[in-house]
Nucleic acid binder design. Structure first.
Lengths: 216, 216
DNA sequence: CAGTAAGTCAAGCGCCTGCCTTAAATCTGG
DNA sequence: CCAGATTTAAGGCAGGCGCTTGACTTACTG
C-alpha cells in the first residue's frame, strides 16, 4: 500500500538516521561518553527524546545497531560455511570465523564505524552481554565453532576455551584497530579488508595449532 | 623529620585511597561511567573535589594509577630479561613480554582490578594514548621487542607489525578476562596466574611463528 | 610561638543529563 | 473528507556533574 510506504518509510528513515549517528558517535568517543541527547541531535532530530521514543534505553539502541549489521554478516558467514563443506583443514574453519566481519566492512565501502563500535561494546561491562547474546544466536556461528573443534580433537578443553577467548578478542579488536588507523590516516599493514582478514586468519591458525609447552 | 612523616603520610594515604577506589570502580563499571565525585566518595573523602585537588583531570588520575603499578611491573620485566641473556628462542622473549603483568597480579594476591582497568583504558579513545605512552616509556620493554624481532628476521615488517598488535591486545585483554571470571566466581581455564601466562605465551609463540599463506 | 602554607570540608554555581509534558505536524482508515 | 493515531518538535523539571569559593584544621618555618 502507498500508505505504508509513505509514512513507514519516513519513520524507518528516522530510525536509520539515529542508528547511523549513534554507531558513529559510540565508535569515536565510546558508548558511555555519548548521551542520548547528543545522538538525537547528531541525527538531526529536533526532539530531545527521539532515541528514547524509537528505541528505549541505550542498551536497546546498542542492540538495534548490532542487529542492523547481523543480517548481512550472517549471510556472508552462511555462504562461506557452505563453501567449505565438511573440511578437516583448520584453516578453512578459521576463515569462516574470521572473514565475515571484514568482508562486511569492505562491502559497506568508504569509512566504517562498526568494528570500533563493537570493540567499545564488548569492553563495556554493562553492554558486553548484549553482543554475546546476539552473536551466539547465530546457528552458523555455532556450526563453525563445532567444526573447528572437530579439527582439534587432541587439544585439552581448557586450552581450547582459552584459545577461543583469544580468537574472539582478536576477531573483534583487530578490525577495530584497522578501522581506527584508516580514520586517522595512519598506515595499515594490509591494503584492503580481505588481506587484513587473511593476515588475521594466518595468525589464528598458528595460535590454534601452537604446541603446549611444559613451562611453569 | 617527624614533620614530613606525619603530614605527608596522611596525604599519601589519602592519595592511595583515591587511587585504589578509582582503579576498582573504573575496572568494574568503565572509566566513563564513573564520576570523580563517586571516586571521592568511594575513597571515603567527604570532599567532592578530592580527585581534582590531588590529581587534576580524570586523565591525570588514570595516568597516576598506571604509574602506581608500573614500577613493580618494570622490576619483574627487568628480572626476566636479565634471566634470558641473548637467547635466540622465540619462547624466551615471548615469556618476557607476557609474564610481567600476570606475575604482578599474582603477587598482589587476593582480588585484583588492574587488568580490567587497563582493558578499559586501552579501549577508550580518549585514554588509549596514555597507556601507550607510559608503556613505551619502559626501555626494557623496547629491548624485549627488539629481541623478539631479532628472532624473526624473515617475517615481513607489515606482518610483524600486525602480529605485534595482536600480541598487545591479548596481553592486555586475556588477564582482564581472567580477572573478571574470578570476580564473578566463574571457572577459569588455568588455576593460577603463572599457568595462565604460560597458556598465553604458548599461543603467542604459535601466533608469531604461524606460516604466511597465499590465500586472498 | 606566631605566621604561613597545605590539606580537608562544605556549600553554591552553571551546565548537561534523562525523563516528562504539551503542542504541532503528518499520515491513516473509515 | 475528516476524526484519530502516530511521529516530531519544544520546553520544563529534578538531579548529578565538574568546578570554584571560602572557612576550618593541621603542621611546618622563621
Amino acid at each position: 500500500m502507498a500508505s505504508r510506504t509513505a509514512r513507514a518509510e519516513q519513520v524507518s528513515a528516522t530510525r536509520e538516521l539515529i542508528l547511523t549517528a549513534a554507531e558513529r558517535l559510540f565508535a569515536e568517543r565510546g558508548v558511555n561518553a555519548v548521551s542520548n541527547r547528543q545522538v538525537s541531535e547528531a541525527a538531526g532530530q529536533g526532539n530531545n527524546t527521539a532515541v528514547g521514543y524509537h528505541f528505549g534505553t541505550k542498551a536497546d539502541l546498542v542492540r538495534a545497531i548490532v542487529r542492523k549489521h547481523a543480517t548481512r554478516i550472517e549471510e556472508i558467514r552462511a555462504r562461506l560455511l557452505a563453501g567449505i563443506g565438511d573440511s578437516s583443514d583448520v584453516r578453512d574453519w578459521v576463515d569462516c570465523l574470521v572473514r565475515p566481519i571484514p568482508k562486511h566492512l569492505g562491502a559497506l565501502g568508504g569509512p566504517t564505524w562498526y568494528a570500533r563500535f563493537c570493540a567499545q561494546v564488548v569492553t563495556d561491562p554493562a553492554l558486553h552481554e548484549i553482543l554475546v547474546e546476539e552473536s551466539l544466536a547465530s546457528p552458523t556461528l555455532r556450526q563453525i565453532i563445532d567444526g573447528l573443534t572437530r579439527c582439534l580433537p587432541e587439544l585439552p578443553p581448557e586450552v581450547r576455551a582459552e584459545r577461543a577467548e583469544m580468537a574472539r578478542h582478536l576477531i573483534v579488536h583487530m578490525p577495530a584497530e584497522r578501522e581506527r588507523a584508516i580514520a586517522e590516516n595512519r598506515a595499515t599493514p594490509r591494503a584492503n579488508w580481505d588481506d587484513a582478514a587473511g593476515g588475521l586468519a594466518d595468525a589464528l591458525v598458528g595460535l590454534w595449532l601452537a604446541p603446549i609447552s611444559s613451562r611453569s
